[in-house]
């Protein structure tokens, strides 16, 4: 009979879907199941929105064991985890969060490097992958053709900034918590953002135009646990954490999928002009980026990472789940 205190944290605030699922699903489920099925107890100390770790140092926080479990975006780890952004390197992928997280899991299962680097180098065990709902383009200004985007300042969080290159837009690196004021003040006039972000961070108040460009639903967040903290737990508690972690992973897909149409509808109700971007435009856009996956793979291969393998597996896995690429990227 022992009580284990676990610190769980994220740099993002609880309005964000994945953090919300940590505090409403992962935490209570683990607490409940451990109490029911073992003679032990788990007690969580939660810290979100940067109160324990910031978005950019959550990986280090889990690594050092200062927090036991952390949820974070790989977009803030371009030096440490460059390959973990692999779905971003293949723009216009599946818009289904469920499919995105499933195919990411398949790739992780086939390429041991992806989880092993976390365990060996960063001392953390991947409990669950996290999907967002599909990336689109929200702007403060209306636009009809891609030419209208030329010279506009548009924000992204990391590698997805590359997607803007074709449109001739000026990329600005940013993060969600600062999005509202930055757009209001004209630091940039648009964001590559999923509908949940547009809604939860009230960006619709300024950005009245939301175009379903369909860049893809990307799985590039993770929920990880310090390996030493994990090893200290009794086997039956470990099993429950792993089990709930996997359920959490699936839920990030299904909840986001379920929310997507609802959130678009809500945006419409709030006076946002939500429109679809025609397939031809998407195909053109994808064509302009057709060489990028190969370049990126080469660059990362040179660093000794299995990039080509990962990108090829992702392409195939997406097709297996019924996705049709607007351009069939060639990686090798």
């Amino acid at each position: 009979q022992e009580t284990f205190r676990l610190r769980i944290a994220s740099g993002h605030p609880p309005v964000q879907t994945y953090v919300n699922l940590i505090t409403t699903f992962f935490v209570p489920e683990v607490t409940k199941r451990v109490a029911e099925r073992t003679k032990h107890k788990v007690q969580f100390v939660e810290g979100y929105g940067g109160s324990m770790v910031k978005v950019a140092d959550t990986l280090e926080g889990v690594q050092s064991g200062i927090i036991d479990i952390g949820g974070y975006c790989f977009c803030f780890e371009p030096s440490n985890l460059p390959l973990h952004a692999f779905q971003v390197m293949l723009p216009f992928g599946t818009m289904s969060p469920t499919a995105s997280v499933k195919l990411a899991r398949e790739v992780y299962d086939q390429v041991p490097y992806l989880s092993k680097v976390l365990e060996d180098k960063y001392k953390q065990k991947l409990l669950g992958l996290i999907a967002d709902n599909g990336y689109n383009l929200g702007t403060t200004f209306p636009w009809k053709t891609v030419a209208d985007l030329k010279g506009q300042k548009i924000a992204g969080a990391g590698l997805n900034l590359k997607w803007l290159e074709y449109a001739g837009a000026t990329p600005v690196q940013s993060s969600l918590p600062e999005a509202y004021t930055s757009m209001q003040t004209g630091v940039y006039n648009g964001w590559i953002m999923f509908p949940s972000g547009w809604l939860q961070f009230k960006l619709y108040e300024i950005g009245k135009h939301y175009a379903e460009t369909g860049f893809g639903a990307i799985t590039w967040h993770g929920l990880t646990m310090n390996t030493a903290s994990f090893a200290k737990l009794p086997k039956e508690v470990q099993d429950i954490i792993v089990e709930v972690g996997r359920e959490y992973e699936t839920k990030t897909g299904s909840v986001n999928e379920e929310n997507y149409p609802k959130q678009l509808e809500e945006l419409r109700k709030l006076g946002v002009d939500v429109r679809k971007v025609p397939d031809e435009v998407r195909a053109e856009w994808a064509k302009s980026l057709a060489d990028w996956p190969r370049q990126k793979a080469k660059e990362l291969d040179a660093q000794g990472l299995p990039a080509t393998q990962v990108l090829e597996l992702t392409l195939a896995a997406a097709e297996k789940h019924g996705h049709k690429w607007p351009v069939r990227y060639v990686v090798k």
């Binding site: 910031k54 950019a56 140092d57 926080g61 050092s64 064991g65 200062i66």
Partner: peptide, 27 residues
Amino acid sequence: GIWLMMGDLDVVRTFVSNTAYEALRDY
């Protein structure tokens, strides 16, 4: 406080130095 919680000086120094770099790195 961290040392009390973790009992490991390596964790303490990593956290302190990492926060020194991260805490103020904000526009």
